[in-house]
């Protein structure tokens, strides 16, 4: 199976990011760029599918030179090839431009290598803007079906069978022919690179593509601001738990919460 995994480089989501009131932009200084968490799940799932069904995994991202590091990291955990569609300010770019650039890049990779992809993986959403739009829009642009929020996939009867997480359980959805899946957190964690795989990845080339293509966006950000914070109430630090609960009960009774 020829698998394409689209990844986005985002600021590390384990760090709290706030607005810099002077620049009116998110304060990203000192925040390490990482591969979007849901994209790491997508890559792990794709690599497991490759290990079971054969073929190769190609990763693709849209971004500036800094994204090469993320792509190298992907090659250290199972991706065979990596491509970067060059675009500065990728983080502020609209959904349609990103999706259009991914589509053009996919076609260019197919032209250059002579292979055709059987399936495209994306993360369910990014951890920075979390709009969950690029995957479905890319599928729609390519006129192929999309299965969102999957937590498992296997090759079956020449196509794929997926498990899509729902509020109450899951759907089993199958598809024959090219499709796009977006990946939610599966039961397993992405593998860690080894020293050997890191060394090997470092030696591999990242092919640059000039396939970025601006889409037309009609959206305009009028204002960026920090949400109003609730003010803190009373913090009880009593000698004993009994005393703390008694104080808390007094306050709650006064506030008539029961």
């Amino acid at each position: 199976m020829e698998i394409l995994v689209c990844i986005k480089q985002v600021p590390d989501d384990s760090v709290e990011i706030f607005l810099n009131e002077n620049t009116q932009k998110p304060d990203l200084e000192k925040v390490t760029p990482v591969v979007n968490a849901f994209d790491t799940y997508a890559l792990e799932m794709a690599v497991r599918l490759k290990e079971a069904a054969g073929g190769e995994v190609t990763v693709l991202s849209v971004g500036d030179d800094s994204v090469k590091n993320s792509l190298k990291n992907c090659m250290a955990v199972g991706a065979d090839h990596a491509y970067l569609c060059k675009l500065d300010d990728y983080n502020e770019t609209d959904t349609f431009t990103i999706a259009q650039s991914l589509k053009e890049s996919k076609e260019e990779i197919e032209k250059q290598t002579g292979k055709t992809f059987d399936i495209i993986f994306c993360g369910k959403e990014s951890t920075d803007f979390a709009s969950a739009q690029v995957g479905p829009v890319l599928a729609e642009m390519m006129d192929i079906p999309v299965i969102t929020g999957i937590v498992d996939i296997e090759e079956k009867d020449g196509g794929v069978e997926t498990r899509q997480e729902t509020e109450e359980g899951y759907h089993v959805i199958s598809c024959q022919g090219l499709c796009l899946v977006t990946v939610n957190k599966p039961k397993y964690d992405p593998r860690y690179p080894t020293i050997k795989s890191k060394m090997a990845a470092r030696k591999k080339a990242i092919d640059e593509l000039d396939t970025a293509k601006a889409g037309v966006t009609v959206l305009h950000t009028e204002k960026v601001y920090t949400p109003a914070k609730r003010s803190a109430g009373v913090k009880i630090q009593a000698e004993s738990a009994e005393e703390a609960v008694a104080q808390a009960m007094d306050l709650m009774k006064k506030a008539k919460v029961f």
Binding site: I17, S131, V224
Partner: peptide, 16 residues
């Protein structure tokens, strides 16, 4: 709508 886990709010308009 929000970004960065709700730490930043964005007010967005449609130009057309």
């Amino acid at each position: 709508c929000s970004s960065y886990n709700g730490n930043i709010l964005n007010e967005i308009s449609y130009e057309a």
